[in-house]
Design a binder for these strands. Structure first.
Length: 263
DNA sequence: ATGGTAGGAAGCCTA
């Protein structure tokens, strides 16, 4: 039976991480990859290195900060760059496109720290804009996956130190409530849906030996429309890349969706 | 102990 594997990975600079990304793509061979924090203008993106591995690209980058991309073995169609709802927002944090039967988006939510700065309300407004956009996508009854670095740790059990992070923008109640409002539209958070009692992280800080101590957080998520959730076969966090040399501070999360006509 | 590390910028900012 045919299936499609869709991964999400915050790479923290595509140029610095190119050896990690290419070795992982060659080994894991995902059909679609949603990248965040590419930190690279589109013209400077290492297109040929990824093309050599058989991937088409859709890019929404900027200099030095943010930047998202979609890689896919199949053709990428109907690309949308940017999240609607704020014409003043020039940060490259959203790209969406169609790959075969799936509409996919690479999402890089604002971090939101420090919470007493304008960054925190920007994050909450961004989450609300994403919710409103997801409402429109749901109205089209499409099979879609919104994957990325949400910078939201959904519950205390998704954080190695809930007390220490209680006031952090990743764990604040306002962030969690806005994330739940998105889920309450009827989206399925793939990893938790398949691991209801599971323990898993997708991010470990560079400082303080967090990786070695397993001081991590689960902040990278794959959100599925009902039509995509019907097809959900598996969802796993691949910790391999985080343990390599010169790693990103995030590791990939990957889901497998049935892609036959029988669904 | 208000640090620590990483990346990209350009003589700090973001995470």
């Amino acid at each position: 039976m045919a299936s499609m594997r869709i991964a999400s990975w915050n790479v923290n600079s595509i140029k610095a991480r190119l050896p990690r990304v290419t070795e992982w793509l060659a080994a894991a061979r995902p059909d679609v990859v949603l990248l965040q924090e590419t930190k690279c203008e589109d013209a400077a993106f290492p297109e040929s290195e990824l093309g050599d591995l058989g991937y088409n690209l859709a890019l929404a980058g900027q200099k030095a900060y943010n930047g998202v991309a979609i890689l896919a073995k199949r053709p990428i169609e109907d690309v949308r760059q940017g999240l609607p709802g704020d014409p003043e927002d020039g940060q490259a944090r959203y790209i969406e496109a169609t790959v075969g039967t799936f509409r996919v988006a690479s999402v890089y939510l604002p971090n939101g720290n420090p919470v007493d700065s304008d960054k925190f309300p920007y994050k909450l407004k961004w989450l609300d804009r994403l919710r409103r956009h997801a409402e429109r996508l749901l109205a089209e009854e499409e099979c879609f996956v919104l994957g990325g670095d949400y910078n939201v740790c959904p519950e205390d059990r998704d954080c190695f130190d809930p007390r220490g992070f209680a006031a952090d923008a990743l764990c604040r109640p306002e962030s969690r409530a806005a994330f739940r409002a998105l889920l309450h539209l009827g989206l399925t958070e793939a990893w938790r849906a398949l691991h209801p009692a599971g323990h898993g992280y997708t991010y470990w800080d560079y400082t303080g030996g967090a990786w070695q101590k397993d001081h991590g957080l689960r902040i990278d998520h794959l959100l599925l429309s009902p039509q995509a959730a019907d097809r959900l076969l598996a969802c796993e966090i691949d910790k391999g890349p985080r343990g390599r040399e010169r790693p990103s501070d995030h590791t990939p999360i990957c889901c497998e969706l049935r892609d036959g006509n029988d669904a």
